[in-house]
Simulated scan of single mutants.
Amino acid sequence: MSTQTGDPGHGHSPAAWTAVIIMLVAITLGTVALFLDQWTLFYVGVGLLVLGPIVGWILTKAGYGVNGAKSAPKAH
């Protein structure tokens, strides 16, 4: 059971969107590379897949995360 009372925001932030988009591009690139038997391109995709969460974390620390100083909350 969670003791948290507030809504954490579910990742609706520029940091989360940027991380997810980078990882989606990485998975698409890796899939195409495997289809074309291009191992160098595949490993570029793997590198981007690792880079996505790191970029998201950096943007969160820079204030673009949920409830960050530079992130405007959306009205529902």
Rank of each mutant, 00 (worst) to 15 (best):
V20N: 13
P53Q: 03
G65T: 01
M23R: 12
G45H: 01
F35T: 13
L51Y: 02
M1I: 07
L49H: 04
L41M: 14
T5W: 07
V46D: 03
L41S: 11
K70W: 05
L49V: 00
V25H: 06
G56W: 12
G30Y: 04
Q4D: 11
M23N: 12
G68D: 01
A62S: 09
W39H: 05
T60M: 07
A26D: 06
F42E: 02
I22W: 10
L34F: 12
V32W: 13
L51A: 12
P73H: 06
I21P: 03
L48I: 00
A19P: 03
L41R: 11
P14G: 13
A16H: 15
F42Q: 03
L51P: 03
G68R: 00
A33Q: 09
K74N: 04
A15Q: 09
G65N: 02
F35Q: 13
G6M: 11
L59W: 10
I54A: 12
L34M: 15
L36T: 14
A72G: 05
Y64S: 04
G9Q: 06
W39T: 03
Q4Y: 07
L59Q: 06
G65S: 09
I27N: 11
L24Y: 09
W17I: 12
I58Q: 08
L41K: 05
S13I: 04
T5I: 11
T28M: 07
P73M: 02
F35D: 13
Q38N: 09
K74W: 08
W39Q: 07
H10C: 08
Q4F: 09
I27H: 10
L41C: 02
T5F: 10
Q38E: 10
P73I: 02
A16W: 15
P14W: 15
Y64K: 01
V55L: 09
Q4M: 08
K74Q: 09
L34E: 14
L51Q: 03
M1K: 07
T5Q: 14
V55Q: 10
L49D: 03
T31W: 04
H12P: 00
Y64R: 03
T40H: 09
G65R: 01
L51G: 02
G6N: 09
V66W: 02
Y43D: 04
I58V: 15
L24K: 07
I54S: 11
W39N: 06
G68T: 00
